[in-house]
């Protein structure tokens, strides 16, 4: 909670977009701070049958039932074994979503010259949800559009998931 408050304090003083950085496996990613409601430790999660493997289930966030997905599995990243995992609660227009990540690193307010276009990689549709790349010294952080990771693709996957188990 206090962490969250601190963030919102900073937000007022600085201009430009700010990002929260986290680890997925050994890679670093970032999402816009404004979409983040809070960060919590991994709670008890109730599994939901018929859902794809990266969909961990539902959790109780102060009386609200929220879906939790494992962002590492979702993006196909091998989880870091000895990391403290955390859940980022995102507010995405109609729904709130919990993202399980390996560890939260920092809040980033990149300067314009530190952000560049994502590298073009044909044959890789996975890059759709990467908006930009942040680079400073030997750090490389991929900036995610969380909605793109989730909405279209996820719902399609969920549909597929329910469809396939129906066929099974």
């Amino acid at each position: 909670m206090s962490q969250e408050e601190k963030k919102s304090d900073e937000k007022g003083t600085q201009q430009g977009k700010r990002y929260i950085c986290f680890n997925l496996g050994t890679e670093e990613y970032a999402i816009p701070l404004l979409t983040v409601r809070e960060v919590i430790a991994v709670p008890e999660i109730t599994h939901v049958p018929f859902s794809p493997p990266y969909f961990l289930g539902i959790m109780n966030l102060r009386g609200q039932v929220i879906s939790v997905i494992d962002l590492r599995q979702k993006l196909g990243i091998k989880p870091n074994e000895n990391s403290e995992t955390a859940v980022i609660i995102c507010d995405l227009a109609p729904l709130s979503l919990g993202l399980v990540v390996d560890s939260i690193n920092s809040v980033l307010s990149p300067k314009d010259d530190e952000v560049s276009e994502k590298p073009e990689m044909p044959n890789n549709k996975n890059t759709e949800y990467i908006t930009n790349v942040y680079r400073k010294a030997n750090q490389l952080i991929l900036m995610l559009d969380i909605k793109k990771t989730l909405t279209g693709e996820d719902q399609a996957a969920l549909k597929k998931g329910s469809g396939s188990s129906k066929a099974a």
């Binding site: 008890e44 049958p49 018929f50 539902i58 009386g63 039932v65 109609p94």
Partner: peptide
């Protein structure tokens, strides 16, 4: 508790409920 939009294709569950120990259940 209603399940979110992301579950709208999920048949078989009408919602969820938070049990006494705070864990949600379908």
């Amino acid at each position: 508790k209603k399940l979110g939009d992301e579950h709208r294709n999920l048949k078989g569950f009408s919602g969820s409920a938070i049990l006494g120990d705070g864990r949600p259940s379908l």
